[in-house]
């Protein structure tokens, strides 16, 4: 029982990070119908920027703001400069381009920051909380992770549901041509969509790095788990991404705990295959024909 509780708690805080990453994928998929394989590398890059800031004596919080801000700019830059020129070509082109950005950013990070392991600070304690005399498998940092993802998700839902900017973002995502006809600056909306997604991606990179080691490829497992979470949630639904993320976090935690951590990757792929076979639109997606 104690083990089940422990696995559940650690699964929740891992799941929150998968949820943030899945959310970043979903935001871009909704607005541009592109699966952004560069999202992990973008989060890695901005996390390294935060690490440089910490090295230079900045506080964790200032470094966090720097990473999120540079994520915003990096997302906007990549959409404008790299994605925009291939957007009107075949649908696969932007996807291939994001793979190219992924590889380029990892190589660039190795050159600029070095390929060795670096440890990344955490703003809160990393030892388990205690309930009475029982040690719980949730750390103050884990609680911070869950809280940060929840706040981000609520802010995004509020933006999309309750502001007219969100309405224009959604309209541009559904049909750019018609939106343009109605006077919506669609190009700006797409750039903003990428920028917002990159902020969330940067957050996931920072959260998973806290108290751990970073190296240019440290986000690679997160890309796989985050993608499975996004597909589980239906790719179209931000709420689905979050629920998918938490579900994957819990599932992988149980698999690692009861069967061994070497099975985690296999379990993720099995879930992916099962979802695609049984419910290809995901748990929360609408069933529509998709060409990726």
């Amino acid at each position: 029982m104690q083990q089940f509780l422990d696995l559940t708690l650690s699964g929740l805080s891992q799941g929150a990070i998968y949820a943030a990453f899945a959310l970043a994928l979903v935001l871009i998929w909704r607005s541009t119908r592109v699966v952004n394989f560069a999202q992990g590398a973008m989060g890695m890059f901005t996390t390294y920027l935060a690490l440089l800031a910490v090295d230079a004596g900045w506080s964790y919080w200032a470094a966090l703001l720097l990473a999120l801000g540079s994520g915003l700019l990096l997302g906007a830059f990549i959409e404008r400069v790299v994605i925009r020129p291939v957007e009107n070509g075949p649908e696969l082109n932007p996807v291939i381009v994001t793979l190219g950005v992924f590889i380029a950013l990892q190589a660039l990070a190795s050159l600029l920051f070095g390929a060795q392991y670096r440890s990344f600070p955490a703003p809160f304690g990393l030892t388990g909380l205690q309930a009475g005399s029982v040690n719980l498998a949730i750390t103050p940092y884990g609680l911070f992770t869950i809280g940060a993802v929840l706040v981000t998700m609520i802010a995004l839902v509020a933006l999309f549901r309750f502001t007219d900017l969100g309405l224009r973002l959604r309209a541009s995502a559904f049909n750019g041509e018609v939106s343009r006809l109605l006077g919506v600056p669609v190009g700006r909306m797409l750039t903003l969509g990428w920028a917002l997604a990159a902020v969330v991606g940067s957050l996931s990179g920072l959260l998973i790095a806290g108290g751990e080691l970073v190296w240019p490829a440290y986000m690679d497992p997160l890309i796989v788990y985050g993608f499975v979470a996004a597909v589980l949630g239906g790719l179209d639904s931000p709420a689905g991404a979050v629920i998918g993320g938490v579900a994957i976090g819990l599932a992988l935690s149980y698999v690692s705990g009861y069967a061994g951590s070497e099975f985690a990757g296999l379990a993720a792929l099995l879930i992916l295959v099962a979802v695609l076979l049984v419910r290809p639109a995901g748990l929360f997606g609408r069933a529509t024909v998709r060409k990726v």
């Binding site: 309405l167 224009r168 959604r170 559904f174 049909n175 018609v178 939106s179 109605l182 006077g183 919506v184």
Partner: peptide, 17 residues
């Protein structure tokens, strides 16, 4: 040419931009 994921009201609101 309506936006399929927006309600009728939201569709019209986009036009009021």
């Amino acid at each position: 040419g309506l936006f399929r994921g927006l309600t009728a009201l939201e569709n019209v609101m986009v036009g009021a931009d």
